[in-house]
Design a binder for these strands. Structure first.
Length: 324
DNA sequence: AAGCCGAGCAACCGCCCAATT
DNA sequence: AAATTGGGCGGTTGCTCGGCT
């Protein structure tokens, strides 16, 4: 048995709301409250669906709503929370007084997603593209990796060029990446002009190098995210102290910036980080539930943002000016 | 000046879930 | 226990407007 519609589709007006309709709805709600949305349009003299009235009220007419640009702090909050809870817009909006889930969703889709992509960060996983590629590569056999590399280089070419063109990259292996260097072939000392070709070369060499008779040399069977296969690419993004997002620098642990406290992304958050993100999500659910009350409670719950996870470990200078 | 295009945003749709009958 | 109902949520659509050619 199907559900009856919330209103008579034929008799309801749709599309943009007029100021008169807004006035009718606002004054009715001011007098009678928001009980029973089904009856509100009828009683308020509106030819609208009850659901449409609810949306208009909650997303636009509510007196406590904040209209206008999102602040830097609000954007940071959105990105942080999105990394933890994903597309739970209502939950995220609950942390931003005066903002609705629709506001947050729209802002994410139109601005923040592009900003993150422009910084070389996947807006879905909040990980650098390079590490995503490395993660994928570890699960594939060499022939598949070769195909992946071709595809990835096509997809991320612009990001690479952008990053690489910002400053000369010294591909000398850093001390902090010593573990990586043991398996790093000598072709990593690149100049930046023919970078893509060099990366391709590196990929193909890495694919050829493992001794297929030795299971320990099969990167696609390893649990480690950083494999020799993508070492060349990953080394394009050496771990550094932080980077800049718009006018806000972040990524430096202990600098007090909200950006630096909890993001669970990047090479320092490998498989374990994935678990941690899941754990955080679980913890979030447990502590706050899925209802609006829980969401409100979370305003005061900051402990979940104090994990040791490091923010994206991308080079600072390279990311000052997002592509988009 | 007109047409095109993309960004931004308001609104709608369909599904889900909890409360109620 | 099952059916019904209302409200909430996330995904998507489509309108508006400004910039560009």
């Amino acid at each position: 048995m199907g559900r009856i519609p919330c209103c008579e589709k034929d008799n309801v007006k749709r599309g943009q709301w007029t100021p008169e309709e807004d006035n009718k709805l606002s004054s009715y709600i001011a007098q009678h409250g928001t009980r029973n949305w089904r009856l509100i349009p009828k009683n308020a003299g509106l030819q609208r669906c009850g659901k449409s009235c609810r949306l208009r009220w909650t997303n636009y007419l509510r007196p406590d709503l904040k209209h206008g640009q999102f602040s830097d702090a609000e954007e940071q909050t959105i990105v942080k929370l999105h990394a933890v809870v994903g597309n739970r817009w209502a939950l995220i909006a609950g942390q931003l007084p005066g903002r609705t889930d629709n506001d947050v969703k729209n802002h994410w889709n139109t601005k923040l997603k592009k900003k993150l992509s422009g910084m070389g960060i996947d807006p879905v996983t909040h990980k650098p593209f390079s590490h995503l590629m490395a993660e994928i590569a570890t699960t594939l056999a060499p022939p598949q990796v070769a195909h992946l590399a071709e595809a990835a280089l096509g997809c991320f070419k612009d990001e690479f060029f952008h990053l690489l063109s910002k400053k000369p990259i010294d591909f000398q292996v850093q001390q902090s990446n010593l573990a990586l260097t043991n398996t790093m072939p000598s072709y990593i000392n690149y100049k930046q002009d023919d970078t893509i070709d060099k990366i391709k070369l590196g990929l193909s060499k890495a694919i050829q190098e493992p001794d297929l008779n030795d299971p320990s040399d099969k990167p696609w069977e390893s649990t480690a995210i950083t494999s020799t296969t993508f070492a060349g690419i990953c080394n394009v993004f050496p771990a550094t102290s932080g980077f800049q997002f718009g006018t806000t620098s972040f990524g430096n642990e202990g600098d007090g910036s909200p950006w630096s406290q909890s993001m669970c992304t990047g090479s320092t958050c490998t498989a374990a980080a994935g678990d941690q993100q899941g754990h955080l999500h679980e913890k979030f659910e447990q502590e706050n539930g899925d209802d609006s009350e829980g969401a409100k409670e979370m305003r005061n719950t900051t402990s979940m943002f104090n994990s040791d996870c490091v923010l994206w470990d991308l080079p600072s200078d390279d990311l000052i000016n997002p592509i988009v």
